[in-house]
Design a protein around this nucleic acid. Structure first.
Lengths: 193, 193
DNA sequence: ACGGCTGTCGAACGGTCGGTCAACGGGCGC
DNA sequence: GCGCCCGTTGACCGACCGTTCGACAGCCGT
């Protein structure tokens, strides 16, 4: 039954999200999924493979949506806003996915090395910046890679504060975060002359 | 001998920086310090206490330097630049400290809850933003907390890319990163009209 | 109705590691 | 020179947990 595999993966997302990967026991995942923990090894070869599968499945969905933004013909500033919106709104629909990705994987060098996909959102943002510069919409004197890293870092920091419960996270708060990021892109922090 | 305690702490920074906290064995730290692993328990009550001590000692130094920036009478934009400089340049002098703080601690909720200090740099930045707004230097329509989170996130993302080896990190690269952050604060990404 | 295959179970294994502790030794006071 | 303290050692313990594996149950083809 392929359905059990899903059960296990879904359970794993929840467990990893709430306890973190290395504090989660294989037994916890099995219990959450309602199966014996031996069964997990019928569908996956190891605990690590479960983590990688969970990660890959969810991350590639986000990646595709981010990449799709590159193909629109909106101004670069608007494209950046869309990228922010995709990531920030995911917190609303799938907080557990954000928890596990943000908190557990994005920083861990062991995983980072095995999974190249992690840098890809930054690459996507970088291309948006480069195209914006080529069209004269964005300042040409910014290093695109650096600007992309900074922008992604801003999004990531906001998500992190939601994950950690440090910041209000209702619908309006999400909209405000999106808006603030857009404003920073538009004119920075300093009062325009 | 109090000196042995230092030896152990210094060894711990190196080991945590290169292997991560939960993959580091107590024996690794002892070996790096050149002592028997039992001795570690003469100076610390647990492996966790070692981590907390390492973290606290190094983090409080950075915190004090960041807080000191609040007391200067420079323009807010300049103060933000200084905060960025403090954090980014630490990568130059003490990469291992940055590695362990950035990669190991800043994201882990277990530690996050035990150690309130982690949010303090963001608080400090927030106060700088608020004061800048009060003096009319910074845009009053930005939520200071949100702006501070975004700014800190940008710094953090740059440090992370250095830690992961994704980005060039010579003296000039550090200067460029600092400069780019300052420019983003000044006028954002968009070409000024 | 039989044999085997697939999915499922959970007891048991094996290795790892944080933490303990009895013993040692060398320096210091007497 | 004697004993005592205390920093130091490393063998050992016990728990934990990922992984294995033999058993079993239901179903399907024959």
């Amino acid at each position: 039954m392929e359905e059990k595999r899903r059960q296990i993966l879904d359970a794993a997302v929840r467990v990893f999200a709430h306890k973190g990967f290395h504090t989660s026991r294989v037994g916890d995942i099995a219990e959450e999924a309602g199966v014996a923990h031996g069964l997990l090894y019928h569908y996956f070869s190891s605990k690590d493979e479960v983590l990688e599968t969970v990660f890959h499945e969810n991350w590639s969905v986000l990646l595709d949506r981010i990449r799709a933004v590159e193909d629109t013909d909106e101004p670069a500033a608007e494209q950046l806003r869309h990228v922010a919106a995709i990531l920030l709104r995911t917190w609303r629909h799938e907080p557990d996915v954000v928890r596990v990705v943000v908190r557990e994987i994005a920083r861990s060098p062991e995983v980072q090395q095995r999974i190249g996909e992690l840098v890809e959102p930054v690459d996507s943002i970088r291309r948006i910046v480069e195209n914006g510069q080529a069209r004269g919409e964005l300042r040409a004197d910014l290093d695109p890679q650096l600007a992309a890293t900074i922008f992604y870092g801003g999004i990531d920091a906001i998500l992190t504060s939601w994950v950690l419960g440090t910041r209000e996270d209702g619908d309006d708060a999400i909209a405000r975060a999106e808006q603030t990021l857009a404003e920073v892109v538009r004119t920075g922090f300093v009062t325009p002359a």
